[in-house]
């Protein structure tokens, strides 16, 4: 076999290992899924009435249609925590030194994690979408719109995963690793997840308009329920691609640094 096919086989082996972990230790996956679902129910059944009244009349939307795309993005961000923790656990245990002293493709450890986490994260985003539909979310997207929305979720998952792999690598312990990605989870709150930035006070509004999650959420919302997207689509893809690249380079650099 060639070097490339060995590398591909190593990556597949590592992916299989991470998927088995996922199935053996589902508690993490459940907690990753639980938070966005609770958020969804909270904002639809508890806060949604008032928020929707303040926002809906002008736009002609029910609140769940407004908030569901943001919650889907939140579900993707929520996956970052489990990625960082599982990478960190791997790095702080002896098995990583075993991998490093074997003649295997060096990046296969990280690509295995990334592929496994992207699959897990996208699955949880799909499940959250399903719950949203069950409680009244009514997307109007065409099949092409669904495909584009799915693509955007995968791209976002890819970006947040590489970033959280890097965070998992720099953390000294699994506890730190579970804290580092938390800003990633809170950024959507200061964006267009729950209310439009236009309704926020001036300073926060400025931040909300220019931070990455607002164009990402607005694009997903546009694809699913037909609100205008405009330039947001390009900006969203650029943010995702840029974050993925930075996360990848950062993770690779930390991983290859010797003597942790």
């Amino acid at each position: 076999m060639s070097t490339f096919s060995y590398a591909a086989r190593d990556c597949a082996t590592m992916l299989r290992r991470n998927l088995v972990h996922l199935m053996r230790y589902p508690a993490m996956a459940v907690s990753v899924l639980g938070l966005p679902v609770i958020m969804l129910l909270l904002f639809v059944y508890v806060l949604g009435g008032t928020l929707g009244a303040g926002l809906g009349a002008a736009r002609g939307l029910s609140y769940i249609d407004y908030v569901a795309p943001g919650i889907i993005v939140l579900a993707v961000c929520s996956g970052a925590v489990s990625t960082a923790v599982s990478v960190n656990v791997d790095m702080t245990e002896g098995i990583i030194n075993r991998f490093r002293t074997m003649a295997i493709a060096r990046t296969s450890v990280l690509t295995g994690h990334v592929a496994g986490s992207v699959i897990q994260t996208v699955l949880s985003a799909v499940l959250v979408t399903g719950v949203a539909v069950a409680v009244g979310f009514r997307p109007t997207a065409s099949p092409a719109g669904w495909a584009a929305a799915f693509g955007l979720v995968v791209l976002l998952a890819f970006a947040t995963t590489w970033l959280s792999v890097a965070l998992g690598l720099i953390a000294k312990s699994p506890a730190t690793a579970s804290n580092l990605p938390i800003p990633l989870f809170f950024l959507p709150f200061l964006g267009s997840t729950f209310v439009p930035p236009a309704s926020m006070s001036a300073g926060v509004r400025w931040f909300a308009e220019y931070q990455p999650f607002t164009p990402i959420i607005d694009t997903l919302r546009g694809l699913l329920i037909g609100t205008p997207i405009g330039r947001d689509g390009v900006i969203a893809v650029a943010w995702c691609a840029g974050t993925a690249l930075i996360g990848y380079l950062w993770a690779r650099r930390v991983y290859n640094r010797e003597g942790r």
């Binding site: 290992r17 088995v20 972990h21 053996r24 245990e93 002896g94 098995i95 030194n97």
Partner: peptide
């Protein structure tokens, strides 16, 4: 790496497998 095997001080088994 292709010629050696290493068993370190830290346990290098995968607990979930």
């Amino acid at each position: 790496r292709a010629a050696i095997g290493v068993t370190g001080q830290l346990s290098a088994v995968d607990d979930l497998l």
